[in-house]
Design a protein around this nucleic acid. Sequence first.
DNA 1: AGGACGATTAACT
DNA 2: GTTAATCGTCCTC
Length: 207
Amino acid sequence: MTAARELLSGPALRVAPRLLGAVLVSDIGGASVAVRITEVEAYEGAADPASHAFRGPTPRTAVMFGPPGGLYCYFTYGMHWCANVVCGTDGVAAAVLLRAGQIVEGADTAFARRPAARTARELARGPARLASCLALDVTTNGVDLCDPASPVRIEGVRRRRPPRVVAGPRVGISVATDRPRRFWVDGDPTVSTFKAGGRRAGAPKRP
DNA sequence: AGGACGATTAACT
DNA sequence: GTTAATCGTCCTC
């Protein structure tokens, strides 16, 4: 196994903070776009009711049950794609959702793919925005991020989490809030706005 | 075969 | 602060 894949293998809670600062590179449609990851979320498999893999493997979640280093892309809300890095080993479904990042290469292409973006910092601020900047969709589902021949690759995965990492609750999730599973680079302007527990910013749910 | 809903975003008031 | 857009997936007949 390659060193990079080794670093991507293991429980999502351990791999997730490691991805902060790593760079995802996409070579699609003749253009190269790269994003430095600034915000992620950990999704475990059977033990995590918020995970797509919670109810066992399906055609959609097959990649999540595959080898670590895979790219799991899924379609949501009838219009958006989001992307995960698969990290589970031995048939255990686990993945890290890529929530936000800073475009470090191919900004012109990213702007062309995201006409609504007015500034560079909002290009990849949010999981669906990040995916669209890199043209991640059904055609990239399951690609091996550790294969130099892949159209999408990951570089610079660290052995330990970088400095200034903060943890908190996942976004858009109202179950399994027992512990923080979202990690981001503190103070980074590309990190998405915080929305806890399945509702928009505001007071926590009261019984 | 039918229907509810979502790991979201953009555009509103 | 609120809400529409829009459709694949999965659960329930």
